[in-house]
Write a protein that binds this DNA or RNA. Structure first.
Length: 389
RNA sequence: GGGGCGUUCGUCUAGUGGUUAGGACAUUCGUCUUUCCAACGGAAAACACGGGUUCGAUUCCCGUACGCCCCGCCA
């Protein structure tokens, strides 16, 4: 059975770009009757907060995704410990004692010499005495995974292409010789996301992974970690393009107004947000769909294009407007009642298309809140007033 | 510095060695409607730049520019 996951780290609120990743996964699973796992990557105890996890769950549900399973990585450390031991025994996880400052210096030095800023594996050269001395000094190591980019001599790496068939980008290859051995465990003993992610994807039986294309090189590393852990079958990966703001900048930098939470509070329909998040950056027409299953009917991974797509929040207004226009009173009724409008059918019909003011009202409770009353004609004001009572 | 990916109407995109370069959103005009919205119909709007291959390049090749991503004890 197909099983997908959305794995945010609960260190903040999610925005429309994150929602896109969640939606792609959910829609993929939906088409195959698969399961959706919401996994909180909260191995960073400092920055992870339960309130963010709760907020993300609320956002995901608001978009129409009900997780079949919710997992916190913070409750699974024994599994990661076991995996780390397994790698250590296989000689694939080695201790290093460089400080972040030292590593930074080394990177700069290599860059200055026009060399790729890759870790030189000096940790592998440490003798037992070295380790004992560091231990005596009270220094704790961070641990790196030895990438299989050599034939026997780790100090003589050679081009090693790792490839996979990407659901969205087609055939991909990454040269492991162009990467540093990834740190799996920090000096303080906590895990970076790589190992837990691999362990969980295996143990939870994740079959398909869709995520942003900033992860393409990570995927090569993770495929190797999974192989080293003895995974019998590897997940199928898909990397989607990113959304940019109007100016071509990164979306995460202007999280505020585009967080799912604020869009919800502004009164946008979940269908409008989900439709835009899903359909922008694909070859599909950006048509509002009221439900996830309608989106699922048209979505397949191959419609996602390869380059970043500029995203204009204005489009949300139009989608929302269209959705409201098509919305029946039955569907709208609970929404109206929640706002304290008892006999709302006349009001709803008015909002849907019989009033001049509608053009200015992109969300129906703009009308109720009344800030635009001044722009209304006498007639319209009387009509709305009547409908509201 | 190295590597990867990318660049088609304002935006999201389709597509091709010879096409009127197609669609969607937005824009605009019109029809309908008492009016507005909606609906329907029409219009305007694009192949990043420079070389090369070719009878012919938006398409193939090389280069340039620009953008994004990766090369983190972030995810």
């Amino acid at each position: 059975m197909m099983k997908v996951r959305f794995a945010p780290s609960p260190t903040g609120k999610i925005h429309i770009g994150n929602a896109r990743t969640a939606l792609f996964n959910a829609l993929l699973a939906m088409g195959e009757g698969g399961a959706f796992v919401l996994r909180f990557d909260d191995t960073d105890r400092e920055r992870s907060k339960q309130e963010y996890a709760d907020a993300i769950l609320e956002d995901v549900r608001w978009l129409g995704i009900e997780p079949d399973e919710i997992v916190y990585q913070s409750s699974r450390f024994e599994l990661y410990d076991a995996a780390a031991d397994q790698l250590r025994q296989a000689g694939l996880l080695y201790a290093c004692y460089e400080t972040p400052e030292e590593l930074e210096r080394q990177r700069k030095r290599r860059l200055a010499r026009h060399l790729p800023p890759i870790y030189d594996r000096s940790g592998l050269k440490l003798t037992d005495e070295d380790h004992a001395r560091f231990k005596e000094e009270g220094r704790t190591p961070h641990w790196r995974f030895l990438l299989p980019n050599h034939s026997g001599d780790p100090f003589a790496p050679k081009r090693t292409d790792v490839g996979w068939e990407d659901m969205m980008k087609g055939p991909q290859t990454v040269d492991l010789a162009s990467l540093s051995d990834p740190v799996l465990i920090r000096g303080d003993g906590t895990y970076l996301y790589t190992l837990p992610s691999c362990v969980d994807d295996r143990d939870l039986g994740i079959t398909h992974i869709v995520r942003g294309d900033d992860h393409v090189t990570n995927t090569a590393v993770q495929l190797e970690v999974m192989r080293a852990l003895g995974a019998e079958t590897l997940p199928i990966f898909g990397h989607h393009n990113f959304l940019q703001d109007k100016t071509g900048g990164s979306l995460s930098k202007r999280l505020g107004s585009l967080s799912i939470e604020s869009l919800r509070e502004e009164g946008f329909e979940p269908g409008a947000v989900a439709s835009l998040a899903t359909l922008i950056g694909t070859s599909l027409p950006v048509d509002p769909k009221a439900t996830l299953s309608e989106l699922g009917d048209v979505f397949t991974p191959d419609v996602v294009t390869r380059s970043a797509a500029k995203f204009d929040p204005e489009d949300l207004n139009n989608l929302n407007k269209k959705l409201l226009h098509a919305m029946s009173f039955e569907t709208a009724k609970p929404r109206l009642e929640a706002k304290g409008i008892s006999d709302g059918e006349a009001f709803w019909e008015a909002v849907k298309g019989n009033l001049t003011i509608f053009d200015d009202c992109l969300k129906w409770w703009d009308i109720i809140k009344g800030p635009i009353d001044a722009e209304m004609s006498e007639e319209d004001r009387a009509f709305v007033g009547e409908a509201k009572q």
